[in-house]
Design a binder for these strands. Structure first.
Lengths: 241, 241, 241, 241
DNA sequence: CATGAATGAGCTTTCATTCAT
DNA sequence: CATGAATGAAAGCTCATTCAT
């Protein structure tokens, strides 16, 4: 960011500063003053939350500043304290939000449990796709784990988000076992973690892995190959015999 | 905690660093003036690098400050710039250092390729164990991925660290295939990523997972269960039929 | 000493600055907390600008620190960034300010063009006097020239200050020429530069000249002698024959 | 300079730092180690003095750092203290040096006093030319005047430099007066100051003047025009009648 | 509700200088 | 003679946060 991220300037008093106020900043200057937008409170709050998700996902908790967020939200630092109490409070809400959104997405996942293999593949596809489409989910979770889950522990709402995905996998496993397709000695949780591991790690660590392996992991081919391998590994793990 | 649990560190650069390690326990506010020239340059440099590894692993790149590091190293901010040029330069050396150390550890792994199943199990045990014993490895890599590998890309030396583990897995796969135990259509890289995924994700995300799943993933039982599951999944994936 | 001799400053931007000026005498280490909101924003801004003019004039751009300025203004470093964006932004406004003030002073100069010799003498007296009364004007301009006009080039407002003095000299020259007193082949710009040269150089370099010539150039006698010589030289230059 | 002016790095200890030592510095790295140059002491001293002249002239006393100078001199900070005692001591020697060099140049000026008009023109040409060829003379003198001659006052040698130019002008004036060409009531000092004023001011303030007047003062035409005007003004000032 | 102003601690980095060989 | 290492103060600037309307 260097000097580009100038703090908001309030040239109200200035009078003499005129055109070249910042002397070297050429920032946005808030096209639409937030106070003028009639939507009011909820819109401001949502805008801040959205901006915060983006900034925290990009720079981490310490790397993202209140000023950056309020600028990105075209609002004011003060509003963050008004609505969220503190930087930490805002961050906690961001975490709750991404959990809630993932839960919602998982809830919408409908599949035919009677076809356990296809259903499992669908789950795998969903998980990998969700991580790919929501990189902020990954970086925010990494950031939270860097802090040893300190913030999520402070959230009262977080406990409400019991993964629907695990329940779904549980149903699939039962169906598969009943049909003698799957092993009977498996926990849905473990299968879920296997899928999540392979999806998450590959994407989360793609930058260091790319440097380490000397190949680009984000090409369509590479992604397709990995998805196939995940399906292969998961199915071989759950299949009977 | 990260590195706090096991301060045993490999004195990679110079044997002299052992001396400073002993003098370092009890991290008050610079009790003994470092100017007394305990060990000279190498000790100072090593001490800073060690402290930086700890601080960056604990607080991330942005969360860890130069002041924290120099204090932990019982040295001065100025020395960081003297030896490493900048905070970023120091961070890059920290990254190089953990890569080099992992490479070294992998190099020391000796196993009997003639027994591919046992050898693979040994690799899995090694990887999981390494991640468990070196939590700083995980958090530093996560931090670096948050920054999209920007720093490791600046390192010229990082390219030298091609994982010996992948080569070892390749030998194991060949041996297993020859013995008709393993499938022939597997890439060592994928098997390595499968193992790394399961080991890394479980530990890296243990705090959010614990909140999410409502159970402690770090108990000896939980860890043993997971290790068994990893072995099961990997072996089922590689085994023929 | 520069500005120390005559703290009388024009409260250009707002009349309110007079208040702060009184409160400013006795520059201890922030005796009265500025947070008590003496006068609000304009006073804070003005105070900083005034302090900056003083400090930059005394120590140059590099020699003057943000901390010195904020202390002298009985404010905080942070406020400088709040109102001026950066040290450089503040410096640019200081430059604009001294230019504007000189322009204003020149504008107020009223003289009888019908008496060109007397009018020219009045201009000379004014210029020499202005430099003598505003040593900060000289040191700030020298500092800016040391930086090759880098800062004034960034100011959009600086272009507005076209010297009224040159226009006045132009009128005097026309009047004098019409009366056959002055030569016809002169440019107002050159005459202006001649006057400015002699006034500026003598004062700007008075310290090294004093050491060099071995005499004090600032005694009333010396100053009077020099003013007479300037008048003599200018008039002999412009006079016909 | 920003981050480009990296402090000297001593990767002696490093061992691990290898190629990308500075991580983002691409500096010169001292082609020829100064210690290896057999010239030894005097050469080192001279190199530092020359580099210091350049750096102080460019950035002023506060703006120029010991590190910049030692780097430019391809030497070490420590050497500055070895040879000059302190930054200030070095600066004083720089001042003495430029005075001495100007004195030397003036001494070499030979002219035919019997032709006072031509001789005076030659002096003017010399002075203007000297300022134009030695911009460091101007900025260093300005810097010293900003500091109120504090440093030159500490110099014991500065007193030795009595301007030969003034003596020469004195002779010219006598010659001219004897020939009834020049006025008899003039001091050589004043004529010298007139010439110096016009030469010095024009060049010293060329950046702010250019912005102020809206024209480039450094074109050959502009310089020639000014030189002609200076000659005109000086000659009209000294000429009898 | 919104916002301008203020606050002090902290950040990374550079400074001139000295120590000890 | 030369130089690597150390040193602490201070630099410019940003931080999260609170005050007062």
């Amino acid at each position: 960011m260097s000097t580009a991220a100038k703090p908001k300037r309030h040239p109200v008093v200035a009078a003499s500063s005129g055109v070249k106020a910042g002397a070297k900043s050429g920032k946005a200057a808030k096209p639409a003053k937030p106070g003028i937008r009639e939507q009011g409170a909820q819109a401001t709050r949502d805008g801040i939350l959205r901006a915060a998700t983006k900034i925290f996902a990009k720079h981490g908790y310490d790397g993202g500043s209140v000023g950056q967020i309020s600028t990105a939200a075209q609002s004011y630092d003060r509003m963050i304290y008004y609505y969220f109490g503190s930087k930490e409070g805002l961050y906690i809400e961001v975490l709750e939000d991404i959990y809630r959104r993932m839960n919602e997405a998982e809830s919408k996942l409908t599949l035919d449990v009677a076809e356990p293999v296809e259903a499992l593949k669908a789950v795998i596809r969903f998980v990998l796709n969700y991580y790919r489409k929501h990189p902020e989910f990954i970086t925010l979770l990494n950031t939270e784990n860097l802090h040893k889950g300190r913030h999520i522990a402070k959230s009262l709402r977080a406990k409400d988000y019991s993964s629907p995905a695990i329940a779904v996998i549980g149903q699939i496993l039962i169906s598969g076992t009943t049909q003698k397709l799957f092993r009977a000695d498996l926990q849905a949780r473990d299968v879920y973690l296997l899928i999540a591991s392979m999806g998450y790690f590959y994407l989360s660590n793609r930058y260091t892995l790319s440097a380490f392996l000397g190949e680009n992991l984000e090409t369509p081919d590479a992604l397709a190959h990995w998805e196939a391998f995940v399906m292969d590994a998961v199915l071989r793990t759950v299949t009977a015999q």
